[in-house]
Design a binder for these strands. Structure first.
Lengths: 108, 108
DNA sequence: TACCGCTATACCGTATCACCAAGTAGCGGA
DNA sequence: TCCGCTACTTGGTGATACGGTATAGCGGTA
């Protein structure tokens, strides 16, 4: 699949929220998860900028834990604001994708 | 619906391509069409920047015609490169939306 | 010991895009 | 004459994903 960069704008952050919401996890693992979900070209740097943004915006709770196989990991979990933001994301996605699919089907 | 700006990145241009592909038309009318399709907050300025980009990238054929009710209109039609780009857009949209919906359904 | 590879995070710069504001301009009606 | 609708252009802004580099812990191996 060629470049999805522009299309991912605004949706990738939501995907990261969803992953964190389903399980407390950390940046490196989130990247691997995205890759296996079909977001094959997403790299660590991109995910970390999103995570720092989520933290800065107060949507996540962060816990640092030692790893045993490398440097310590920063685990992320959604707080109430994060869950609310995630719900809003899915509402927007639902809205947008329905409009676009309607347009695709000959848009009326 | 609150702000869809970020989510529209990469998809709005595709929507404009689709509209032009279905009928030769001009900027002002495209904006009205998008509005009635549910992209309620999209304004003229945004559409014109997309149209200029499409022209610059050689995806459209442009014809200026007098209007009778105002300044002349610039009508846009897809050329071969534009039709190819449109096909690519729908392929990417299909790919991305299927991955995101899978993630939404509990991502496997 | 030295090096490599995997894990793991941070930071800085870049490109792209949708958006916004202001300007120009044609036309018809009050 | 002014206003409103139509219609396009241009310059600047903010948000986002991405790329590259740096730092660092750990285990294996030559």
């Amino acid at each position: 699949m060629d470049d999805l960069t522009e299309m991912l704008k605004g949706t990738l952050e939501g995907c990261v929220l969803e992953i964190i919401g389903s399980e407390e996890t950390y940046g490196y693992a989130i990247t691997r998860r995205l890759n296996e979900l079909g977001f094959t070209d997403v790299i660590e740097g991109t995910v970390y900028t999103i995570l720092l943004r989520l933290e800065r915006n107060g949507l996540v709770q962060v816990t640092k834990r030692p790893s045993g196989v490398g440097p310590p990991r920063k685990f992320y979990a959604l707080n109430d604001a994060g869950r609310e933001e995630l719900a809003k994301f899915w509402t927007k996605w639902q809205y947008l994708s329905s409009r676009i699919n309607r347009l695709k089907e000959g848009g009326r």
